[in-house]
Amino acid sequence: MHTRLRARRVTVAAIATLALLPLAACGADDPEGSDGAGTSAGADLDGSITVLAAASLTGTFTELAEQFEAENDGVEIDLVFDSSGTLADNAAQGAPGDLLATADLGSMERSEPVQASDPEVFATNTLVLVTPAENPAGITTLADLDDDAVTYVVCVETAPCGTLAAEVLDDADIDNEPSSLERDVKATLARVVEDEADAGLVYRTDALAAADDVTLVELDDDVADDAVTEYPIVTLDQSENPDLAQAFLDYVLSSTGQDVLTTAGFGTP
């Protein structure tokens, strides 16, 4: 009897918790529902979209989404950041999302089955060399990496930044191997910021975002051409709000969007 009573109490608690879940969801939906009715500025935009974006877009897309939300009442932009390949594969497998922005064209191709339009290039990025702020190994050019005593890290070749890094290292005939292949550009940068590595190859935008934590070393002109990647963006078939998705895509390509991107260190396509 005693145990049965306790079991029932647990059941009641579980049901109460379950019952609260939809309420919580309602709470989150509510603002859009009520605001969206009257106040959307100009174009009839409301609701929310999810943007799947490459890790290197974390800073800029967060800023763009905030600006876009401020300009359009009742609109909500949710952002998911991960490595480009993972996002493209997830999208191709039907992961919820309205827009996909990757850090290279190769990853973008893998989302081909669910692309609702042709991908458009909205930015470019360049690989640069970074060292810890004090530059303990005294690195001034890419060639300085070719020394067994130098510990440096790059992205794994399955990530766009790793593909570029491999080409650049090959172009420059660097025989000293990297100490670690990091899963994405943020992880590579973190090694350098934490002073675990003497140098790392990351995007210019990440180097600029790290500001005083790292010292930026430009690549020589002869390898810099191979060190550029293009960022495409596309609307996805599974979008439940294609109008809003298209509006945000246009916003990224607009002069306002491009300003935000160039300020962060991206190049224009």
């Binding site: 890290v153 794994v156 191997e177 990297p178 100490s179 670690s180 292949l181 990091e182 899963r183 090694r191």
Partner: peptide, 9 residues
């Protein structure tokens, strides 16, 4: 430990 084939992978 990082991730490098043949060393720490």
């Amino acid at each position: 430990a990082g991730n490098y084939p043949g060393a720490t992978q």
